[in-house]
Computed example of a mutant assay.
Amino acid sequence: MINHLQRSVLHLAPRSGLVPMVVSCCLLIGCSSEAEFTHVPISGEVTLQKKPIAAAMIRFVPVQGELGQHDSVTMITEGRFVFDDTNGPSPGEHHVVITPIEPEMNEAMQAMQEGDRDPLKSKTIPVRYQSTGQLSANVSPSANEPFVFELSKR
């Protein structure tokens, strides 16, 4: 069944190039330029040599940069981290990056200025965990068990 708008478009089609323009407008009306993000609430713990990390930052970085996926960052306190449904990572496979908090970075910069060649290797977070590739997590859209990341200095 053809509605009034479709009849008008079909009537105008032979006389002008309006069909592509009308079709484009109709498609754009239903589209939004803003991506909607799904935030999954998750929690977990991070240990180094089987001891809780006192303070650091944990970041979930999507492996595939698809529409609707996003990075999520939160603090680790006394070895625990929590994301809720407003700041959690998107569902899917993620790289997990753990970095020291600002005061530790300041100490490391000062140590480098004093001649230490790699001051972070002896700090709380080994360098290999501070970039993508070492740790990963698969975030399910619902009902995730707490994530456990056991770091080692070796």
Rank of each mutant, 00 (worst) to 15 (best):
P141D: 09
I98Q: 00
F83R: 02
T86D: 10
S90D: 04
R80S: 06
G65W: 11
P146E: 02
P52I: 03
G30D: 13
G68T: 08
P20Y: 12
H70G: 00
V139C: 07
F37M: 03
V63M: 10
E36Q: 09
E66D: 13
A108R: 04
T74L: 01
F83A: 04
V23G: 05
V40N: 00
P20N: 08
E114A: 10
D85Q: 15
E78W: 15
V23C: 08
T86V: 09
M105A: 13
L18A: 15
L10Q: 12
F37D: 00
D85P: 09
V40T: 04
M57F: 15
I58V: 12
T47G: 02
V96S: 01
I42G: 02
S122C: 03
P62F: 10
D71Y: 07
T38R: 08
R7W: 07
P126T: 04
M75C: 12
A13G: 14
S8K: 07
P41I: 00
V23D: 07
G79Y: 05
S33N: 13
V22E: 09
P146C: 07
M57H: 10
F37A: 00
R128E: 02
S43M: 06
S43G: 08
L12I: 05
T132E: 14
P100E: 06
T77I: 05
E150W: 14
L18G: 15
E34F: 15
S24C: 13
P103T: 04
L5Y: 13
N3K: 07
E45G: 11
L67A: 05
G115F: 11
G92F: 04
V63H: 04
G68D: 03
S16W: 11
P141H: 12
I98A: 00
D118E: 11
L28E: 12
N106F: 12
E93T: 05
Q49P: 11
R117S: 11
R128D: 06
I53M: 06
S136I: 05
P146K: 12
G68N: 03
C31S: 12
G92E: 01
S43T: 11
L135K: 02
P52C: 11
G17P: 06
P14S: 05
V97I: 14
S131E: 08
P91S: 07
I42M: 03
I2K: 15
H95R: 09
T86H: 13
E150T: 13
D85F: 13
L12K: 11
L27R: 15
G17N: 08
M75L: 10
G115W: 10
L120A: 07
P52D: 08
V40A: 03
H95Y: 15
Q69H: 15
Q134I: 03
S24N: 13
P100F: 02
H4P: 02
K50T: 09
S16R: 07
S152E: 04
L67E: 03
R15W: 15
I125A: 00
E145G: 05
L48G: 01
N138H: 09
A55R: 13
P41V: 07
V46W: 01
S122H: 14
T77L: 13
G79T: 06
I125P: 00
N3V: 03
F60D: 01
V63W: 04
G115D: 09
I58S: 01
H39T: 10
P62Y: 10
F81S: 01
A55F: 13
M105Q: 12
